[in-house]
Simulated scan of single mutants.
Amino acid sequence: MRKSFFLGMISLLVFANCLAVDSLGLSDSVKGSEAREEIKQAALTSDILFYGSVDPANAAMITAIDLFLTDLYLKIDDSKYYKKADVDKCVSDVRVIGLLVMDPSTTVATSANCNKLKANGAIL
C-alpha cells in the first residue's frame, strides 16, 4: 500500500504542470506580478535619476507618464511564471539602456529581452 502511494506521488510530481512546480518554488521562475514589479521598479529608478537631473520641475509628472507607458508595453501575464534569468535581462536593459540611451518605456517596447518574455509552458 505504501509503495503504491509513494509511486503515485512520484508520478504526480514527475508529470506535474510547470505552474505547480513554479508555485512551490522548485524552479528558477518568478510570478508574472513579481516580474512586472521588478521591471517597474527599475523603470522608476531610471526615470528618477534621469529626469531628476535634467528637468527637476517636471520630473514627477514625466516619471508617472513613463511608468504608465512601461506598464502598458509590458506583455506579462500576472498569473503565469517567467524564467528569472529572462526577467533579470529585461531589468538590466531598463536600468542601463533606459537611463543612458532612451527612456524605460521605450526600452521595454523595443528591447528583445523585454518584449519577448515568454511564460513557462506546461510539461506534458
Rank of each mutant, 00 (worst) to 15 (best):
S53D: 07
D86Y: 01
L99A: 08
F15G: 14
A112C: 02
L24T: 13
F50H: 11
L99N: 08
Y81P: 08
A122F: 05
C18T: 07
D93M: 09
D55S: 10
G25F: 06
V101P: 01
S92R: 05
D86G: 03
L13F: 15
S27M: 07
S11E: 04
D93N: 11
V101L: 11
A64W: 01
G98H: 06
S79P: 03
G121M: 05
T107V: 13
T45H: 09
N115S: 05
I65D: 07
G32E: 09
V96K: 08
T106D: 07
S79K: 15
R36Q: 12
A20T: 10
M61Q: 13
A85W: 07
I62D: 11
L67R: 06
C90N: 06
N120G: 11
L69Q: 12
D78G: 12
T110I: 04
L117A: 09
M61N: 10
L117K: 09
K3Y: 12
L49F: 06
T107L: 00
G98I: 03
Y82Q: 08
A16L: 04
S4V: 12
I62L: 15
I76T: 10
L7R: 13
F50P: 00
V96R: 05
D71K: 06
K118W: 01
S29E: 07
T70K: 03
D71M: 00
V101A: 13
C18I: 00
V14R: 12
E34M: 03
L49H: 02
E34C: 00
D103F: 02
A64I: 02
L99G: 00
E37H: 09
V94R: 04
R36H: 15
S111I: 01
L117V: 06
K31L: 07
A119E: 15
A122W: 00
L67I: 09
T63S: 14
D86R: 10
A57T: 13
D55R: 02
A85I: 09
A59N: 04
K83F: 09
T63K: 08
Y73I: 01
D86V: 04
V54H: 13
I62Y: 13
K84F: 01
Y81E: 10
D22Q: 12
S111Q: 08
K89Y: 05
M1I: 02
K84T: 11
G25D: 08
L12A: 13
F68C: 11
S105G: 05
S92L: 13
K83R: 13
